[in-house]
């Protein structure tokens, strides 16, 4: 449809994102080899979160999508996070 003007993403953007993703991957492998104790998991997950954010924003075009689609995606991730937190209300406080 003519009013659904497509945004053509330049190659350069994809290339840069890939470089960033690879760098983050190696950084996360590097960081877990350092002894961080219980923060290792947190570090690895933070890297994974940043990577997934890049994939969602650029590869999956969310940056160029209408706000309501962004809102839906954010909502789904948020509700999943909430469900995990609630589940842990049980497991964290078991005696």
């Amino acid at each position: 449809m003519s009013n659904e003007k497509h945004h053509i993403v330049p190659y350069r953007v994809y290339a840069l994102v890939l470089v960033a993703l690879l760098a983050l991957t190696f950084a996360s492998i590097g960081i877990v080899s350092i002894e961080l104790g219980k923060y290792t998991v947190a570090a690895a997950l933070i890297f994974a979160t940043i990577k997934s954010f890049l994939v969602l924003t650029y590869f999956m075009h969310l940056k160029y999508d209408k706000p309501y689609i962004k809102a839906m995606v954010a909502f789904v991730f948020a509700i999943f996070f909430v469900v995990i937190v609630i589940t842990f209300l049980d497991y964290l406080y078991r005696t």
């Binding site: 469900v83 609630i86 209300l89 049980d90 406080y93 078991r94």
Partner: peptide, 21 residues
């Protein structure tokens, strides 16, 4: 309604905190 599922499990052995919630 998405966040209240545990009320089916009050007597199953959940933690007290979860039960209150």
């Amino acid at each position: 309604g998405y966040l209240v599922w545990g009320h089916h499990m009050f007597t199953a052995g959940m933690s007290g905190t979860a039960q209150y919630y």
